[in-house]
Simulated assay, not measured.
Amino acid sequence: MSTPTPVLFIHGLWLHASSWQPWADLFAERGYAPTLAGWPGDGDTVEASRLNPDAIAGHGIDDVTEHLKTVIDRLPRRPILIGHSFGGMLTEKLLGEDYAVAAVGIDAAQIKGVLPLPVSALRATLPVFRNPANRHRAVSLTASQFRFAFGNAISEEESDELYARWTIPAPGKPLFEAAAANFSPNSPAAVRTGNESRGPLLLVMGGRDHTVPEAVTRSSFRQYRHSSAVTELLAFEDRGHSLTVDSGWREVADACLDWLEKQGL
């Protein structure tokens, strides 16, 4: 019997790795071997992460990338990567470096070369950018900040429930690095978009996303125009940044599974 294909789920800022558990259960039912990847300093649980924000602080894109490479190296073979927000950007980076057989970036954070900077994205990240010292800190969102950044397309009640269940402090450093990417020749937000031999990539976007609006995802998609490798775009026009964890997560997960099947994975 062949070994099940590994799938590594990568969270973004402000959500704990365990928020992927419903996806992991579904993928396991479909015959995959899922792993939930935390970031450096994350606690084993949401509560443990909230109690020790100093362990989360100060980790940048390169730190998280190297951490994820060690996780991948322990898997029986190269995985499929599925990431949300900054986790989506990390899937793009790792796929470009041939650490995966395929990747799905859901509302993936901006990579180097992306120029649009929508006002809603600035407002969503203002809790970090309002203080330059946050580059070295871990920053938590309030329930109202989470509702704007994640839960604007769902009810306030559901947004508050997701906030209470899944949110953890997030390092500010990756946001500062992404913001300066187009001015830095060696930015950690750079992705090998021209890689011709990489596996297929699906970029998923929410049409009502405040944190990573469609304009950002479409610009990321255009960065791959010089590669003949499979790169596809999928939109959920009525969804916000919470689309991987809210009550409509299954629709997104099923679409990702269907796409992977079409890629022979």
Rank of each mutant, 00 (worst) to 15 (best):
173 K>Y: 04
172 G>A: 01
201 L>V: 06
138 A>M: 10
199 G>W: 06
144 S>V: 15
140 S>A: 15
155 S>T: 15
168 I>D: 05
153 A>Q: 12
186 N>H: 15
215 A>D: 10
137 R>D: 15
180 A>L: 13
194 G>R: 13
147 R>C: 08
151 G>F: 08
178 A>N: 08
148 F>H: 11
178 A>D: 05
169 P>N: 01
195 N>G: 07
214 E>I: 12
140 S>D: 11
167 T>I: 05
153 A>I: 08
141 L>N: 01
136 H>C: 12
201 L>P: 03
214 E>S: 12
181 A>W: 05
147 R>V: 08
145 Q>D: 12
186 N>L: 14
195 N>M: 05
163 Y>T: 06
198 R>C: 01
179 A>W: 09
171 P>Y: 05
211 T>Y: 01
217 T>C: 01
210 H>E: 08
207 G>S: 01
176 F>C: 05
201 L>R: 03
170 A>M: 08
139 V>R: 08
163 Y>R: 07
198 R>T: 00
185 P>W: 09
185 P>G: 10
207 G>R: 01
182 N>Y: 04
209 D>I: 00
137 R>T: 13
181 A>Q: 00
215 A>F: 01
187 S>P: 06
174 P>N: 06
139 V>Q: 05
169 P>Q: 04
169 P>K: 04
172 G>E: 04
206 G>T: 07
142 T>A: 12
199 G>Q: 03
147 R>T: 14
150 F>Y: 14
213 P>E: 03
155 S>Y: 07
140 S>R: 14
152 N>C: 09
205 M>H: 10
186 N>W: 13
175 L>M: 12
175 L>G: 11
195 N>K: 02
160 D>C: 09
163 Y>E: 05
148 F>Y: 15
181 A>T: 03
140 S>Q: 14
192 R>S: 14
152 N>D: 11
217 T>E: 01
145 Q>S: 11
184 S>D: 15
217 T>H: 03
166 W>G: 04
206 G>C: 04
157 E>K: 15
202 L>I: 09
170 A>L: 07
145 Q>G: 08
147 R>I: 10
184 S>W: 11
196 E>K: 14
191 V>P: 02
157 E>I: 15
143 A>P: 05
188 P>W: 05
163 Y>D: 06
153 A>F: 10
138 A>K: 09
177 E>V: 02
157 E>G: 13
152 N>L: 07
199 G>A: 00
184 S>N: 15
169 P>L: 05
174 P>S: 02
202 L>R: 02
189 A>S: 11
152 N>I: 08
186 N>E: 14
160 D>A: 15
200 P>R: 01
195 N>C: 07
199 G>P: 06
175 L>K: 03
164 A>W: 09
197 S>D: 15
167 T>L: 00
190 A>R: 13
159 S>I: 09
144 S>R: 14
166 W>A: 03
167 T>W: 00
200 P>E: 00
163 Y>C: 08
192 R>G: 08
183 F>P: 10
143 A>C: 11
177 E>Q: 14
168 I>K: 03
177 E>Y: 05
187 S>E: 05
174 P>W: 02
217 T>M: 02
149 A>R: 04
164 A>V: 05
159 S>Q: 09
